[in-house]
Amino acid sequence: MDIQRLKPHLPWITLVVLVAIVGINDPGFLRPSNLLGIAGDIVPLFIMALGLTFAIYIGGIDLSAQSVANMVTVVASVYLASMGAWVAVFCVLAGFLLGMLSGYVTTRLFVPSFISTLAVGGVAFSIAQWLSGQRALNMDATQRNETFGWMIGHTWGVPNELLIAAVLVAICLFIERRTTLGRALKAVGAGELAAAASGLNVARYKILAFAISGALAAIAGLLFAVKLSGGAPTIANGFLLPAIVAVLVGGTPLTGGVGGVVNTVIGTLIVAVIRASMLYFEIDATRQQIVFGIVLIVAIALTIDRAKLRTVK
């Protein structure tokens, strides 16, 4: 009973505790400039996690996010010269369409989402390799600065990435809390059969959720490409695990219906603090993956709603 009541609060308590532990051991960690820096560095990952939140919120998963981001880094690098700022629109649209494809395959063709998104991820990966000729690409520095320089500058000491993230959070939060789409997604995640029995077009909303996930993965890829001033078909590898961890640690369970955008904000910050603290405690960077893998298992085990799984396959 008490655990149940505590559960929704666990993510932010975890965050506060983690910050406190690191802060006590290294007061320098708590300097605003340091905190801002840490937050700014994680923005591309955060945006991907934000997208994944929608897929997981409806009880699905999007394993294509990383490949979509990879593909977008390549697309952005290749077409920046010819398309200018329009390349951003093109990238987001591409992500949205790939997400729609995943959603369509999942809902209309009855393929489980982890397979359909894996397959669509394969398609995205192929596109990336084809466009890049399997090489790492560089953007033209002046053109990047002219077109997308605003993305990575600072405004009054705050990294612009953070502002971009804040805008996206505001939009996603609005969708989640104030629109019919958000309400429908919640209903689909919390009780798909009841949503269908209420006359909602469940398939359409699920497709939209995957499409949003794809679009945000594309934005993540775009930002990453701008930051690194280039792209490659595997450049964002290593994003998927921490992004899934961020969503789940934040308290959106794999079974969907609960949690949401705010939870992912907290979850991403937890991931960021864990990363930073590993640095401070001089834990070898090579251990990072193993740590996140274990955190992922613990987070799923704690958050998953077993009442919703008739049999666990």
Partner: peptide
């Protein structure tokens, strides 16, 4: 199929 547990009264009513 009737109600969505996890959603509140007004969310269920207007679903």
């Amino acid at each position: 199929e009737g109600i969505v547990a996890g959603m509140n009264v007004y969310e269920n009513m207007t679903l």
